[in-house]
C-alpha cells in the first residue's frame, strides 16, 4: 500500500527546437516512437506499473493528439472513480518555462495537489524512453530522509524528482519569493536549503531531445539487448490500442532486423527499420534504416534510406530518398513525396 502514497506528475510542456520537424503539430509527449507508442507512454506506464494510481499531466503546446491518445486513461487502467488520470492544460497567458515541473502551471491547478491524499509526488518529464520501477526510489527517499531525490542516469539528471507533496505545495506557493520556477531551479541554486539526493538508475534510459537522439534511440531499440530492457512481460508499456489486424506479409516481402506494428501490409524489402501501424510498403521497394510512422503509404519501386516519414505521408511509385545515419531525412506529416521532387 506504500506506493499508494505517491502522486505522478508529468510535465508535458516541454518543447525542443531540435525536434521541430516532428513536433510542429504535436506536443513532444505525443511523439510516436517504437512503432506503436508515444513518448509519454513510457513514463506513464512506469508510474502505473510502480503502483501510482493518480497521475496529473500538464501539457502546453498542441495537445490535441496527446488528449486523443490518453482519452480517459483507460488503456493505462487509470479511468478510476477515485484518483486516475488528470489533464491540466496550461492557460495561454502562462509564459514559457524551460524546466521540468513548471510551478506556474502547477499553481493554477493547486487544488489537485491539495485534495490528493498521497504524501509524495514524483515529478517527471515526458520524453524519456525507459522502463523503470519507481518503488525503490521512494524506499530510498524514505530511508535517506532527503527533501528531494533526483533520478539520474549515466551521470546526468533524468529530470525526474521525488518530493514530499507538502514540500512541493510549499515550493509552488512560494515561487514568487524564492524565484524557483521549476524543480530544476532548486538544484541549480547553490544556496538552496534542501537536502537533495541522487538516485542512479542503471537501466536503459534515453531522453529524446533532438532528431538525432530520436533516430539513434530508435535504432537501439532494434537491438534485442535494449528491446528486452524496455518491453517486459510483467511491466508492459501501455498505449492506446487500435483494432488493426495482424501485419500481412506477401510472397515478395523480405524483412530483416525490423520492428513492425499491426495493420501493415509489407510487399517490399525492409531492413533495420521501425514500421508503425497500418503502413503499406509496395512491391520492389527497399526501406533501410528508416522510421515509418502510422498510415504512411509507400508505393512500388521506392528506395528509402535513413528517412523518417511522419504520419500519413504518401510516397509515390519510384521515389528515392536518402538521409544518412547522423542526419536522417525527415518528411513532414501528411505530405506527398513524388518521384520527380527529389530527383
Amino acid at each position: 500500500m506504500m506506493m499508494k502514497s505517491m502522486l505522478g506528475v508529468i510535465d508535458a510542456t516541454t518543447y525542443k527546437d531540435d525536434l521541430e520537424e516532428l513536433i510542429a503539430h504535436r506536443s513532444l509527449a505525443g511523439l510516436p516512437i517504437a512503432g506503436r507508442y508515444r513518448l509519454i507512454d513510457f513514463v506513464l506506464s512506469n508510474m502505473v506499473n510502480s503502483g501510482i494510481g493518480s497521475v496529473a499531466i500538464f501539457p502546453k503546446y498542441q495537445y490535441r493528439s496527446l488528449m486523443d491518445h490518453l482519452g480517459s486513461g483507460k488503456n493505462w487502467d487509470l479511468d478510476r472513480k477515485r484518483d486516475g488520470l488528470f489533464f491540466f492544460p496550461a492557460s495561454i497567458t502562462d509564459g514559457t518555462s524551460e524546466g521540468i515541473g513548471s510551478f506556474n502551471q502547477f499553481a493554477a491547478n493547486i487544488d489537485y495537489f491539495l485534495r490528493s491524499k498521497q504524501e509524495y509526488a514524483l515529478v517527471a518529464n515526458c520524453y524519456t524512453v525507459f522502463n523503470m520501477d519507481f518503488s525503490p526510489v521512494l524506499e530510498r527517499h524514505l530511508q535517506s530522509g532527503c527533501d528531494i531525490t533526483e533520478i539520474r542516469s549515466g551521470g546526468e539528471s533524468l529530470e525526474i524528482y521525488l518530493v514530499k507533496k507538502s514540500l512541493l505545495v510549499d515550493l509552488i506557493q512560494t515561487r514568487d519569493i524564492t524565484g524557483y520556477t521549476c524543480m530544476k531551479d532548486i538544484k541549480l541554486d547553490i544556496h538552496h536549503n534542501y537536502k537533495i539526493c541522487d538516485y542512479e538508475y542503471t537501466g536503459y534510459a534515453e531522453k529524446i531531445d533532438s532528431i538525432s537522439t530520436y533516430f539513434r534511440v530508435s535504432n537501439e531499440i532494434l537491438k534485442m539487448s535494449i528491446w528486452s530492457q524496455l518491453f517486459l512481460k510483467d511491466r508492459p508499456i501501455f498505449t492506446k490500442v487500435k483494432d488493426e489486424p495482424p501485419t500481412h506479409y506477401t510472397t515478395t516481402s523480405e524483412v530483416k532486423n525490423s520492428m513492425i506494428a499491426n495493420g501493415s501490409v509489407i510487399e517490399g524489402k525492409v531492413e533495420n527499420s521501425i514500421i508503425a501501424r497500418a503502413v503499406k510498403i509496395g512491391k520492389g521497394s527497399t526501406i533501410k534504416n528508416c522510421i515509418i510512422m502510422q498510415k504512411c503509404t509507400i508505393g512500388d519501386n521506392c528506395e528509402l534510406d535513413s528517412v523518417i516519414l511522419d504520419k500519413d505521408v504518401i510516397v509515390e511509385n519510384g521515389t528515392k530518398m536518402n538521409g544518412n545515419l547522423n542526419s536522417p531525412f525527415v518528411v513532414r506529416k501528411g505530405t506527398v513525396q513524388g518521384a520527380l521532387m527529389n530527383s
Binding site: 517504437a34 488503456n75 532494434l222 528491446w227 520492428m259 513492425i260 514500421i275
Partner: peptide, 8 residues
Amino acid sequence: NQPPQYIS
C-alpha cells in the same frame, strides 16, 4: 498490449 513484432 504488446510491443510490435520483431523480425530478426
